[in-house]
Amino acid sequence: MNERPVKLACRHVWKIYGPHPERLLANGAAPTLDDIRRSDHVGAVRDVTLDVREGEIFVIMGLSGSGKSTLVRCLSRLIEPSGGEILFNGQDLLKAGAAEMIEIRRHRMGMVFQHFALLPHLTVLQNVAFPLEIQGIARDVREARAREVTALVGLKGREDYYPRQLSGGQQQRVGIARSLAVEPELWFLDEPFSALDPLIRREMQDEFLRIQNQLHKTIVFITHDFDEAIRLADRIAIMKDGAVVQVATPEELVLAPADDYVAAFTAHVPRAKVVTIGRIMTPGVAPETAGSLPASARVEDVADRIEAAGLPHAVTDAAGTVIGHVGARAVVDVLIGRGT
């Protein structure tokens, strides 16, 4: 994973609201939370530095008011950051002019919104085709493309419905289809499933993973739901009071929380949901194996298979080379929380 190139990076990004944010940040200063408060400013995003790599699902997790929504709007430059750099394919977005920004958004970025943000006066098809219409693409071309993406999200046959005739889950499918219509390189999802019922939410998460397996987009996904974060993320950034507390894989977060705040989130997460077999395997090649599994597989997903087999399974790295083996006992240790 770490070899993949960086798609989006932010360097010391700040967003401070108040009368004179520039004074607080003058000459590269890094004011503390107290400095900001004492001067009657609000630090919505504080000194955030992140790398989002190509093809990964990068989740930004935080409770309401932690600054995650502001941060994603800084990354897409919907909000002008008070300071810092945002590098998209190495180019600083904050230096891009208005026309250039329009071009980048038209062709290379997509965004899904918490409350869907569908245009009520347009049909499903017209909504999905809207980003293409804005670019001036001919009607038949854009509608053909819109039909494709609408089918991709499972709404074939509802092209002529209006948003008000759809359920919340279906509306968000339209939102997802619309953001994919331009084939963006970078896909922002701002709490896309928070407004949905728990059952629908789960279904939509599966749907989202299915689509991502097909498309391999670079994704920045915002959520306040820690379960959702560990379910979907390759890596998670946890935010508190505008700052990033820890960036790690779900497994590292659970096994090695950076502080008490992160630990409070991870305390009740079943280890099997996050621990990979790469972590619990015994290095070296086993004499006899029942089969092989990738090191990145999570214990929860393969426990049944390992337990059912009489022999250990071989564990392979991303290249397919056998790097170790794992047996039923190691799995049971994780499942019942023994000796972590």
Binding site: S76, L78, M109, A117, L119, I134
Partner: peptide, 28 residues
């Protein structure tokens, strides 16, 4: 809703398109 305005900007509407194609129809 602010999200609709943000949506318009995210798909790369020019200020004119934002008014004609997003804001005015929604406010109709």
């Amino acid at each position: 809703p602010p999200e609709l305005q943000e949506f318009g900007r995210m798909v790369g509407c020019t200020p004119g398109q934002q008014m004609r194609k997003v804001l005015l129809p929604v406010a109709l």
